[in-house]
Amino acid sequence: MSMTPSEYITHVAPLRPLLLGVGRNFFHSEEEAEDAVQETLLRLWLCRDRLAADDSLRPMALRVARNVCVSMWRKARLRETLTLEEGHTATRPATDQADSRLLADDRQFLLDMALRRLSPSERRLFLLRQEPDMNLDLMARITGMQPRSISSKLSAARRKVYDFIKQRL
């Protein structure tokens, strides 16, 4: 049971309006519903090796969409404090004879912090792009977003991450 990318585009992508309805029914907000459906489609994409293009696909997609809505609702109720992470700064200037491995660890840590500060949509696109052979067209088919919108959000995400790390190194 495994779905190829073309099968995903053929069988899963057309479910977008249905999944969007699940989000609208829950949030009554177009923005949050859109966010939920993007997350749902991404999860289905990442789990495509466990999907089959049969009658079980539609109920499973709906279930994933409902799970995403509830998950987003739960996260929204939690207060995320970043003060502990804000306090973590690199104390070793790069111009010193510093251990490059420690600097790399700092960069990785800061990268993780920066990614967490992105909006869910930006983070999703940033990491989706890291997949091998993931081009703009495929990202558009997976998420249902316009390529121009993807490019714009990707740029915003990368610049935010870059600026965040640069300010703290």
Partner: peptide, 26 residues
């Protein structure tokens, strides 16, 4: 910095995404 960004790991699927069911809570 850009090198670190390019080396970021892609998203990984979590095992429970297809098995959990919060439909009742929804």
């Amino acid at each position: 910095i850009v090198q670190a960004m390019l080396q970021a790991e892609p998203m990984q699927a979590e095992p429970q995404w297809l098995t959990e069911d919060d439909s009742d809570e929804y």
